[in-house]
Design a protein around this nucleic acid. Structure first.
Lengths: 215, 215
DNA sequence: TTCCCTTGGAGAGTGCCACTATCTAACCAT
DNA sequence: ATGGTTAGATAGTGGCACTCTCCAAGGGAA
């Protein structure tokens, strides 16, 4: 199919598709002539993924490009592909080591992680991961505001996260081909984030009504 | 204290504080003369909250303004304050009713909510809430990509969300004054989001290593 | 009192990001 | 041949979160 049809079938404006092609988010179509290219259903699927990552997952275009590049890097084993892809998602920077709130946050988080028996991998130390830095930044902000975020308060959230992770991996393991597993892992990691957060807000409204509203 | 000291103590640039004052995110200081104003620790605390919402919670400035305005609207009862504040957070728009994926998503989500016994409030119907719309949008995107997101697959996530909501409300109930409770509810809702998502990613890495890496 | 530095306030400007519009040369159908 | 598409490149747009520049009014030191 040509670009116009790709646009129509995906609901993405032609100019936007051209932009994604330029940015390398979408592989170039098969060139038929100097001014014509052919796109197949793989392009369509990829385009839908790109749109979902950017619009639903709020992933910046540049990060999405890195994520997708990792999925196609055949020089990496699948575990590394996933690691590189997830690491490309937006994360907080390294905190200021002089900030006392940041130090306290690190202590709480490290105690939490140790208490759960989460191991730092040798090749990919958890302590340097983007998720760890983002967690530190959030806990630091909570501490700075005076809100509770000690190891004890974080523990139930970590327990819930562990449960969710088991469910995530169960979904990923439904796929047989490793390449499909990696793509599914990325897509489910990113696209289930708004699902989780929305469900939490709905559950909060529910629980709040249960506790505070007496009919 | 004057603006310069407020800036120093909060780590926020003076020009940025002026911008927040202009935008109404921060109440004006107590005017001493025509060219001087005094700020107190309440301003400092508010400024820290604003920064945390914007930088850690990724809340847009305009939305943060609405959220904070709701916290100070004394014409509302506290339950409504919280409702208005949470509703001001960024959410997906109403989906296209003609899209078959969106219809399927709505069916899955409604079945899920019904199955859990979550009740639509009469004054604030859940079906029109921003969280519900965001959930629909995310599930629609998953369906469009062909990833599993039926009621059965969503159920474990909803169960985890319910657990988290109980923990959230426990934290909120530590505060005695209703005004404090409302502010805490908003701050904890927004600022625990990156905490939850980071913990999920760390737990995923853990679970993934447990399943796929045999030493 | 005079000089000068700082402050609060207002408007314009900046940089980044995600597109989007315009242009051009090539191509295909008629 | 010719009118409408198409791919690709370049420049422009709009939104957002600041950030810079300017100004008149204080206030402190000499």
């Amino acid at each position: 199919m040509r670009l116009a049809e790709l646009s129509e079938r995906s609901g993405v404006a032609p100019a936007t598709i051209k932009y994604y092609l330029r940015e390398g988010l979408l592989p170039p179509g098969h060139r038929v002539t100097a001014t014509q290219a052919d796109y197949d259903t793989a392009h369509l699927q990829r385009l839908k993924l790109v749109r979902a990552l950017i619009q639903v997952g709020r992933v910046p275009v540049a990060a999405a490009k890195e994520v997708l590049a990792a999925l196609e890097d055949d020089s990496l084993d699948h575990h590394s592909q996933l690691g590189v892809a997830v690491e490309a998602l937006p994360n907080a920077p390294e905190p200021d080591p002089a900030d006392p709130h940041a130090r306290a946050a690190r202590a709480s988080v490290d105690a939490l992680v140790d208490g759960l028996g989460w191991q730092y991998g040798s090749s990919d130390p958890q302590g340097s991961s983007g998720a760890y830095r983002t967690l530190l930044a959030a806990v630091t902000a909570l501490a700075r505001l005076g809100y509770p975020c000690s190891t004890e308060e974080l523990a139930p959230y970590a327990a819930a996260a562990a449960q969710v992770a088991v469910t995530d991996l169960d979904l990923v393991e439904r796929y047989d081909a490793p390449a499909e597993q990696v793509e599914a892992a990325v897509a489910l990691t990113v696209l289930y984030e708004p699902v989780l957060l929305s469900l939490r807000r709905l559950a909060q409204a529910q629980e709040s009504a249960r506790r505070f509203v007496r009919p």
